[in-house]
Structures are given as structure tokens and as C-alpha cells.
Amino acid sequence: MPAAPGAGRLIAALYALFALAATGRAVVQIATRFSAAPLAYTLTAVAAVIYLVAAWALTRTSAVSRRLAWAACTIELVGVVCVGTLSLATPSLFPDDTVWSRYGSGYGYVPLILPVAGLVWLARHRQAPPS
């Protein structure tokens, strides 16, 4: 059964919310204390860009935007799994938290759930609806 087209809008809206959160966090961290944890703060900025791309691409239906949405969700899933594992295995790498630390536990694990939901939706909703 194909997923409802509207579910993609909800996923995109949640990505937009996290884009706002990560952008705000990255701007404040990089502007006020970048040297304290450069890796963590750079990753937050990278996450913010990926969230923005995902939020935009999930609301579009062109072939290019679908590829972008696939890429953004995949990169985010890889990012949250890698950073989540690293933050538990080598906490000294991350003196301050990122959105992806400990699999996004500081954000209710939404950073882990969102890319999975996005990928599932993209896989089920292959046919671009008529615009």
C-alpha cells in the first residue's frame, strides 16, 4: 500500500523544525565559542544544511528533488548512526553535544527516527503525484 502523499508533508515539516533548531544552535555555537568544540559545532552546521535540503526536497516532486531527498535522508541516517556511536565510544571527541550525539537522545531520538521515516516514505511513494 503506498504511503499517503500528505505524510511526506508532515515529515518535511518536522525536517523544517529541526532545520530551525540546528541552524539556531550552529549560529550561536560558532559565533560565541567555536574553538571549544569545533568538530561538534561544524557537525551541527552540516546537520542544519542537510535538514534544510531534506525539508525542501521532500515537498517537491521533480526527479532531481527526489534524488536530493534520498541523499539528504541517507546522509542524515549515516550521520546520526556514526556520530551517535562515536559520541558513546569516544566522548572526548565531542566536548559539547550535537543534534546527532547519542543518536539524538537530546532531541527525543527524532534525529534518528526522521531519516528512517523519510526513506520509508520515499520508497513507498515512488510515483510522483500530478502537480
Binding site: A4, G6, A7, R9, L10, A13, L14, L17
Partner: peptide
């Protein structure tokens, strides 16, 4: 989002908000 997406998914966006 809720205004533009006139389905339960738009309503769910308000829940998330």
C-alpha cells in the same frame, strides 16, 4: 502546513508544533 495540507497529516503537523 495544516492549511496547505488539508488531510490528517497537516493536522499532525499542528500536533508536532
Amino acid at each position: 502546513v495544516a492549511v496547505e495540507e488539508r488531510t490528517r497529516w497537516g493536522t499532525a503537523a499542528l500536533t508536532a508544533g
